[in-house]
Design a protein around this nucleic acid. Structure first.
Length: 289
DNA sequence: TGCAGTGTTGCTTC
DNA sequence: CGAAGCAACACTGC
């Protein structure tokens, strides 16, 4: 499940690989994944001939700025992967032309594939088919994404700003951290890891946090997300970079899906509970309620 | 074998 | 208005 660090890794790699490329063709076997324009032929017509000027990230959204002020938005949701390479259509499945990590079974789930002017391809692999693809006029996109909260890794996301966005919020800290309208980009894995780093219990009510606890959470957000970006994301779920390679955050992961194991800090057993229908992992001894 | 668990977003319901 | 539940989908693990 791609969260901020995984999307950031993807976007950085895409900027190295596909900048200046022009779309010449699009293939799909699941056309309703393209939500805007709804008509796939229309989408195809509008994409063809357009050039990629820049790739950006907003929260968990990937934005391809194209020529003529269009922007292609891709949200990977749970199991979407963007892959760059060369494939051949074989019996309804895309097979990679060259040996390597792209040969893993994520290939089976390619439902959308763009071909560029140099023969290179951009594939969207998506097991659960939840990913969303939309083509926007750039001027309308800002409004569309305006409900997203601030980007946690930018310099001007200061402690003051963090306090401001949390002030007045009711609810459990875990839920608030995952709310994209409060802060953009944090999902289930990193909210667990951030709260472990900050030694705060996921069920802690936001209005009950004192200043020191706010400070710890703020510090932990920056630390964990920066670390995860540096390590090119996780791969306990099925994240892969655009070359099909894993991230390295798993070696650093302390609580997510570690229930029953010993806490690396105090040796107590890591617990798993449900919060608003989501799994939450934490150490009940060193994370304070 | 069968069914709960998996996570993100948005829509529906209360 | 907000919170909770569920659907979108398909595969894994118990």
């Amino acid at each position: 499940m791609p969260e901020l660090p995984e999307v950031e890794t993807t976007v950085k790699d895409l900027n190295k690989k596909v900048l200046g490329r022009t779309f010449i063709d699009i293939w799909s076997d699941f056309k309703k994944q393209v939500k805007k324009p709804k008509n796939f032929e229309q989408f195809k017509k509008e994409i063809k001939g357009r050039k990629i000027e820049k790739v950006r990230r907003k929260g968990k959204n990937i934005l391809f700025d194209l020529s003529d002020s269009k922007t292609l938005l891709i949200h990977q949701k749970l199991t979407g992967h963007l892959l760059v390479g060369y494939w051949i259509l074989d019996n309804g499945y895309w097979r990679p032309k060259v040996k390597g990590p792209l040969e893993e079974k994520i290939n089976t789930f390619i439902h959308l594939l763009f071909t560029f002017d140099n023969g290179q391809m951009l594939a969207l692999s998506d097991l659960r088919k939840f990913a969303k693809i939309e083509l926007w006029d750039r001027k309308n996109l800002k409004k569309e994404l305006s409900s997203l909260g601030p980007e946690p890794l930018v310099k001007d996301f200061t402690f003051q700003k963090f306090k401001d966005v949390l002030t007045g919020k009711k609810g459990k800290i875990k839920q608030i951290l995952m709310n994209q309208e409060v802060i953009a980009g944090i999902g289930n894995i990193y909210s667990d890891e951030i709260l472990f780093e900050a030694r705060i219990h996921p069920l802690k009510e936001v209005p009950n946090l004192n200043k020191d606890e706010f400070k710890e959470i703020f510090r932990a957000i920056k630390k964990i997300l920066k670390k995860a970006v540096k390590l090119r994301g996780e791969s306990i779920s099925d994240f892969r970079d655009i070359g099909g390679r894993r991230g390295f955050f798993d070696e650093y992961r302390k609580v997510y899906r570690k229930e029953g194991q010993k806490c690396s800090r105090c040796g107590a057993i890591i617990k798993k509970i449900k919060i608003a229908g989501r799994s939450a992992h934490f150490c009940s001894k060193c994370q304070k309620l």
